[in-house]
Design a protein around this nucleic acid. Structure first.
Length: 259
DNA sequence: ATGGTCGCGTAGCGA
């Protein structure tokens, strides 16, 4: 089963790029972030015609997550638990039923810049809520994953120029510690379980020719529970997508599970 | 130090 995560940076602007990639990669599931659309305006028919069930959790102009699946989805829930006053659409869950059931959590973690400040406080508070949800997920002892745009550069090797990110909310020590705290509960980060070394990125800024200089960062991640990690066969980044017409600033990352 | 580029929505914010 191929499961992908892709921050598409606006569904309206990305319909062609996204459908082209879906037809090529043929993922069973695509977790999408930054749809930047309300649910009613999401062009669901285009993806239903490609054979996907469409579940969205959108908001006007900003954020928004979605799940596309060729396999049946069950028990869809929207919103990260822990703060009923949080109106930002950054979390969606569903169970995909293949040969075995996998619990999927699609997330768009807050950027947090500028740091320090209220946006950074929101990021760290959101990560603490994520940690609590992660603990509950592990306690279920079933194959489950949390994937999406984490807005976290885990290690210096995950940036072409780590020194440029020293004071950034994506790389500050508190951000990386909060991410590590979740990982160390017992998750496997799929990409680093399969691939070592530098120069593997999932995001290149639109500005200053970042793509042409390969000035990227790796911020889109798959965290797998032990039961899910046992099924991991592959993890790859479709970086070539970034060089196409009208690309997102992120590219898809996908895993292949024996499920 | 500044500005560099996109998307949304049609000004200015978020990234």
């Amino acid at each position: 089963m191929i499961i992908a995560t892709f921050n598409i940076n606006g569904i309206k602007a990305r319909v062609n790029a996204l459908t082209d990639w879906l037809k090529e990669r043929q993922p069973d599931v695509a977790l999408l972030q930054e749809i930047k659309s309300v649910d009613e305006a999401f062009p669901r028919e285009i993806f239903e015609d490609l054979g996907y069930q469409v579940e969205t959790h959108g908001q006007k102009s900003f954020n928004g997550v979605a799940i596309l699946s060729k396999l049946p989805l069950e028990d869809v829930t929207r919103g990260l638990p822990g703060d009923d006053s949080d109106e930002q659409a950054r979390w969606i869950e569903a169970t995909v039923v293949g040969r075995q059931a996998i619990r999927l959590c699609g997330l768009y973690l807050p950027n947090g810049n500028p740091a320090p400040g209220p946006k950074y406080d929101y990021k760290l508070a959101w990560m603490e809520r994520l940690r609590r949800r992660a603990e509950a997920l592990l306690a279920e002892e079933m194959p489950a994953l949390m994937a999406g745009d984490y807005n976290i550069i885990p290690q210096p090797e995950d940036a072409k120029r780590p020194e440029a990110w020293e004071d950034d909310a994506l790389f500050r020590p508190e951000s990386r510690a909060a991410y590590r705290r979740i990982l160390n509960l017992g998750f496997t980060e799929a990409f680093r379980a399969r691939v070592q070394g530098p120069d593997h990125y999932s995001f290149w800024d639109y500005q200053a020719g970042a793509w042409n200089r390969n000035d990227g960062i790796r911020i889109d991640h798959f965290l797998l529970t032990p039961q899910c990690a046992d099924l991991l066969q592959d993890c790859r980044i479709d970086s070539e997508i970034r060089g196409r017409e009208k690309p997102s600033d992120h590219v898809p990352v996908w895993i292949d599970l024996a499920a």
